[in-house]
């Protein structure tokens, strides 16, 4: 024991090896930075970019309204899609064969036809069904409204985008649910939990780790897919707004840049949001130090009073439950 101690107390001479040289890194840096410099120079010197026009229109009322509408469409369609996708994924795992089959058929249809076609269809829904009627099928009617008053262009755009997206998200959610170890549901079953509680409290929170990254991807995809809503036709989104201005001014390039800048800004914000959601659902699994409580402090607390040691641990937990 003693010789062991002495060995540790002797000053340690760190190895100081000659590092491997990486000339490839320098060469690639020169090539890429050179190309970047040329591109940046062109941005400033090429008059065709018309940065003055970009500056004029970047905060134009029509453009900002377009950004707002694009956000409204993205968020509403994604919320609708996520709700449907959870339902579809649960149905797909159900013991009820009717649910399993319906879920499969939904995904087959909405994934199997182009989004553009579906959007045109929703725009034309009032041609197919001029009135929406409530009542007993094949029996008396209780009320009847014009389809156009219920399914406005906005509603048609959100339905078209959301229903199509739900098919893709359903597959992502299904993969997520399947990724959770079967032992988790078994442990919950053994505790006497019901199926719904097991799904919401045990399986889904763990599946979210797998679900969130591709769903973030889909959200960013949705942001840009909203530019297709002119098929409905819905005419207030960002792409439509900048296209209209471009046609009016005969200056397509600067207005495309305006649209691109806004899409990039929103995408960046969505990525920040995704980072925090990932961190939330990764708790207990990702990026965890061996112990979040300082072990020395815990030991000291335990030495003072045995019950006191549990206190910091309890407090640590509070935010989780209180957040609910």
């Amino acid at each position: 024991m003693d010789s062991h101690q002495e060995k540790h107390e002797a000053p340690v001479v760190l190895n100081n090896p000659v590092p491997v040289r990486h000339p490839g890194r320098w060469i690639s840096a020169i090539i890429i930075l050179g190309a970047l410099a040329l591109f940046l120079q062109s941005l400033f010197t090429n008059p065709n970019f018309r940065w003055d026009i970009v500056g004029t229109y970047i905060l134009d009322t029509k453009v900002v309204q377009g950004v707002a509408w694009t956000l409204v469409l993205t968020v509403s369609a994604m919320v609708l899609a996520i709700i449907l996708a959870i339902l579809l994924a649960f149905m797909r795992q159900s013991e009820n064969p009717v649910f399993r089959w319906s879920s499969w058929a939904w995904v087959w249809f909405f994934r199997g036809t182009p989004i553009y076609t579906q959007l045109i269809f929703w725009g034309l829904i009032s041609v197919l069904y001029p009135k929406i009627t409530g009542g007993i099928p094949f029996g008396p009617e209780w009320f009847s409204v014009d389809t156009n008053t219920v399914i406005t262009a906005t509603a048609a755009a959100i339905l078209g985008l959301g229903l199509n997206e739900s098919a893709y998200l359903a597959e992502i959610f299904r993969a997520g649910l399947k990724s959770v170890d079967r032992g988790q549901a078994e442990a919950a079953e053994a505790l006497g939990m019901g199926k719904t509680k097991i799904m919401w409290r045990i399986v889904l929170p763990q599946a979210m780790r797998v679900i969130v990254p591709p769903t973030g991807n889909e959200t960013i995809g949705m942001l840009k897919t909203t530019s297709l809503v002119l098929a409905v036709p819905f005419t207030l989104d960002l792409t439509f707004a900048t296209n209209t201005l471009a046609n009016r001014t005969y200056l397509p390039v600067p207005l495309l840049i305006v649209a691109a800048i806004w899409y990039l800004v929103i995408t960046s914000l969505l990525m920040v949001g995704q980072h925090f959601i990932e961190a939330y659902y990764g708790k207990g699994v990702d990026n965890l130090a061996p112990a979040t409580i300082n072990p020395a402090a815990a030991k000291a607390a335990a030495a003072v009073a045995p019950s006191a040691a549990a206190e910091p641990a309890l407090k640590m937990d509070l935010p989780e439950e209180e957040a609910k």
Partner: peptide, 11 residues
């Protein structure tokens, strides 16, 4: 394990 109440299983 009373001093491990706040630990996640991975810890």
């Amino acid at each position: 394990l009373s001093d491990h109440a706040g630990h996640y299983p991975s810890q």
